[in-house]
Amino acid sequence: MKKIFGLVLLMLLLVSATEFASPKPEAMHSIEGTWELQSFYNYDDGINISDTVPKAEGYRQVKMYYNGKIMWSRHSPKDSLDWFGYGTYRITADSLIETLEYGSAPMMSALDTLRVFRFELEMNDDYYSQISFDEEGNRTFSENYKRID
């Protein structure tokens, strides 16, 4: 009986020590919600932002993320085509991966060549940037969104 009690006590001590010694993972921000495009960044050297491009007057792009699903739409007064898409997404601490299943006719044409979109992700509670990169891993441009819901 003393051996069992000693073993249980030792196990509890090890578990307690492990909990206190192991750092808790940093909580990730949630991308779930509704986001509106605010601006674009360009990266000339692949690292630093070279300029900020505001969205054109009347241009509106909204993305909605919920329960692993994404839906987005875009309206541009200078473009007569409808642009929208639907699919799934997942995020990690520093990346956003969107896999589109279907969309508007122009989007479906684009989906013939590319369905999985991978971005570097910079995010806080109310703002995120999805950063595109070239085949060598250099940043090229970003879309910058603000949470609206």
Rank of each mutant, 00 (worst) to 15 (best):
K3A: 09
K3T: 02
K3V: 06
F5H: 06
F5P: 04
G6A: 15
V8D: 05
V8Y: 00
L9T: 11
L10D: 07
M11S: 13
M11Q: 04
L13E: 09
L14I: 13
L14T: 02
V15L: 09
S16H: 01
A17N: 06
T18Y: 15
E19Y: 15
A21Q: 13
P23Q: 13
P25I: 05
E26M: 15
E26L: 15
A27C: 14
M28C: 09
H29V: 06
S30E: 08
S30N: 07
I31E: 00
E32A: 13
G33A: 03
T34S: 13
T34V: 14
E36D: 01
E36Y: 00
E36I: 05
L37K: 02
Q38E: 14
S39A: 07
S39N: 11
Y41R: 10
N42D: 14
Y43Q: 10
D44L: 02
D45M: 08
D45L: 11
G46A: 08
I47K: 12
I47H: 12
T52K: 06
T52C: 08
V53L: 13
V53Q: 09
P54V: 10
P54N: 10
K55E: 07
Y59L: 15
Q61K: 11
V62A: 04
V62M: 02
V62K: 00
K63F: 10
M64G: 08
Y65I: 04
N67M: 14
G68Q: 01
K69C: 14
I70K: 00
S73R: 11
S73M: 14
R74M: 08
S76G: 04
P77D: 12
D79M: 13
S80D: 12
L81R: 13
T88W: 00
Y89M: 00
I91G: 09
D94K: 08
S95Y: 07
L96V: 04
L96W: 00
I97F: 05
E98S: 02
T99R: 03
T99N: 05
L100A: 06
E101C: 07
E101P: 10
Y102R: 05
G103Q: 00
S104I: 06
A105D: 07
M107Y: 14
M107A: 15
M108A: 08
M108V: 10
M108Q: 08
S109R: 15
S109D: 11
A110Q: 14
A110S: 09
L114A: 07
L114W: 06
F117P: 04
F119R: 00
E120H: 11
E120S: 08
N124K: 05
D125F: 11
D125H: 08
D126H: 07
Y127A: 14
Y127E: 07
Y127S: 10
S129M: 11
Q130N: 08
I131A: 03
I131N: 04
S132Q: 12
F133K: 04
E135K: 11
E136K: 09
E136V: 13
N138P: 06
T140L: 09
K146R: 09
I148Y: 01
I148R: 01
I148M: 03
